[in-house]
Design a protein around this nucleic acid. Structure first.
Lengths: 146, 146
DNA sequence: TTCCTTGCAAACGATTTGCATTGGA
DNA sequence: TCCAATGCAAATCGTTTGCAAGGAA
């Protein structure tokens, strides 16, 4: 199986954490890459056609998150969705549908992102809190839920 | 029992939704008001000294959220925290500790908030998505977790 | 061969719900 | 009085884990 550029980065990162990039995990990553936003274990289980049992899915997700390849995201009720970490796909934000809970990626224009960073830098670091990052969620209704 | 101004707003809102503002619910609201950020059922159960059983707590939280008095917030793994809705306490954002999961409120300076709103307005409304609000999470380490 | 990974089933923790009882308007 | 609220226990739901079998280095 020919590794894409992305696969190579991921494999390297995993190997550095003594984690194997197995075919099952490759399928999981592929499903996440194909999605346009973070996905939950259940959603992935659905798109992977039951070929990967839930428990393995959960384990793969957690292992790859520990290795820094995936990042967890919490938005709708009790479900954790995963996406590729930002060092792999770049910094971005999310559009969250308050009706169905769907989450889509959105990248801000460079000037907007810069403004946001300035703003966060100015506001954080209050009372002993040290900021290490930020996440902007734009809430609304997605096209399906109008 | 003397209602504060806030209690009155809440009672009115609840009554409009045929929901009663009982003493138990008042205690829940008081605990949330006393906190400086959203709180989970478990955390409230703790501070309320076991006087309110968990199941009732969950029920109260969900009923008051449906009535628009409380707003749910999802950040750390599988726990839902509630806070007073913004029409009661004003618009604000959150400082989230990536280590312990604690969440604190933070209010942006007016100009910063205005800038943020402009930024969101410009970025959203992409591909059929209609934005109705935004939430900024500033991630980092709280004073306890340094 | 040595470990990591996989699968299945059982275990968990957070949250929800059925039902009989209590309490508020 | 009448219907919503409460408590307890049982049920759910998403997620985790123990353990034996399979697979990659």
């Amino acid at each position: 199986m020919t590794d894409t550029q992305l696969d190579t980065q991921i494999r390297t990162q995993l190997v550095n954490h003594e984690v194997r990039y197995t075919s099952g995990r490759k399928r999981v990553v592929a499903a996440i890459v194909a999605a346009d936003g973070p996905r939950s274990a259940a959603e992935l289980h659905e798109t992977l056609g039951r070929g990967v049992p839930l428990s393995s899915l959960y384990r793969s997700l957690s292992v790859m998150a520990d290795a820094g390849v995936l990042s967890p995201h919490h938005s709708s009720k009790g479900v954790t969705r995963y996406e590729l970490s930002e060092w792999l796909v770049g910094h971005h934000h999310h559009l969250v549908c308050t009706s169905c809970g769907a989450v889509d990626d959105i990248e801000l224009p460079t000037e907007a992102e810069a403004a946001l960073e300035r703003l966060v830098a100015g506001a954080a670091d209050t009372g002993g809190f040290t900021s290490t990052g930020h996440a902007l969620e734009i809430e609304g209704r997605c096209s399906q839920c109008t």
